[in-house]
């Protein structure tokens, strides 16, 4: 049952305590989240909402104060739980003494990929993330921000993970590059890879993710599919009479049907009836401000 879930957290909580003053800050407050296998999941939230702390707890880079985090049914405290995870952090600092190929080789070796497979995979991955293989032997210190982001993505993919955790993956990448990264992610999605995206770019999440959770002040304030969250809660009705078109915003299907009956009796002709939709941005702002 649990293995059907790529990620499952139960009452995950993180309290940071100052070493000297003893002051406490609760960064993540009892988050229980379920991410289905094979889905594309977006974690949204304003700055300081606790998104990155949550992700770090999934990777065991941050130790939870309470609660559990499981990846494919395994507690993330177990290093083996991290074997299926590919991770790209937001503010990564890859050692500049590495060449691009050397860096991929190192991280692949840490993931237990054997040398022969690494030699085969590295040039393939360079091309896959849109990097010219001629950069393979150049030190990453010479790479641009966008190139670092791509080689970082290649690092996350080197061991063929079944769960990809990406923190702002298109940060610093130009629009063409963003499209390329999105294409790579779509291809992975088609292969059944679960993609967990932590991003503040709402449009990116709306375009790419199937499921989202909005986090604010360490708590999940809204969760669901992008389609459900952006689906309209009403209808827009346009009807005409002799004096021209008129519009009505109606809250429910019953209300819309009643209004149509009334208008027809009054001699209006119905022009259109469209369910209203909202953008993820509207949903996000409403969710975050509504919980203030």
């Amino acid at each position: 049952m649990t293995a059907e879930l790529a990620i499952e957290t139960t009452d995950l909580r993180k309290v940071f305590r100052s070493r000297w003053s003893g002051k406490e800050v609760c960064a993540v407050e009892n988050i229980s989240l379920r991410v289905n296998r094979g889905t594309t999941f977006g974690l949204l939230g304003p700055n300081g909402a606790g998104k990155t702390t949550f992700v770090k707890m999934l990777l065991s880079a941050c130790i939870p104060t309470a609660g559990t985090a499981r990846v494919y049914g395994r507690d993330t405290k177990d290093p083996e739980a991290r074997r299926p995870i590919g991770y790209l952090p937001e503010n990564h600092r890859f050692p500049t003494y590495f060449t691009g190929a050397g860096m991929l080789d190192f991280y692949a070796a840490l993931s237990g990929v054997d040398a022969a497979k690494r030699r085969k995979l590295i040039p393939e991955l360079f091309e896959r993330v849109g990097l010219d293989p001629k950069w393979m032997d150049v030190r990453v210190g010479k790479y641009s921000k966008g190139m670092l982001q791509r080689v970082g993505l290649a690092q996350a993919l080197i061991h063929s993970p079944s769960l990809l955790v990406l923190d702002e993956p298109s940060d610093g990448v130009d629009p063409v590059g963003r499209r390329q990264i999105r294409d790579v992610l779509h291809a992975l999605e088609a292969q059944g890879v679960t993609i967990f995206l932590n991003s503040h770019l709402l449009q990116e999440v709306e375009l790419f993710c199937r499921d989202v959770a909005i986090v604010n002040k360490g708590r999940v304030v809204l969760e669901g599919t992008v389609n459900d969250l952006t689906a309209g809660k009403g209808y827009k009705l346009v009807a005409m009479n002799g004096s021209g078109p008129k519009e009505w915003n109606l809250g429910s299907r019953e209300e819309a049907n009643g209004k149509i009956d009334d208008l027809r009796r009054e001699g209006f002709s119905i022009e259109s009836l469209v369910p209203t939709t909202s953008r993820l941005e509207d949903v996000f702002i409403e969710a975050v401000q509504g919980k203030k």
């Binding site: 990777l59 880079a61 991770y87 952090p89 890859f94 993931s111």
Partner: peptide
Amino acid sequence: SVLEPGRIEVMLSKPIS
């Protein structure tokens, strides 16, 4: 140097203790 933020997280995300 290995504990620098942005570097250690990637290493800790790998399946090694």
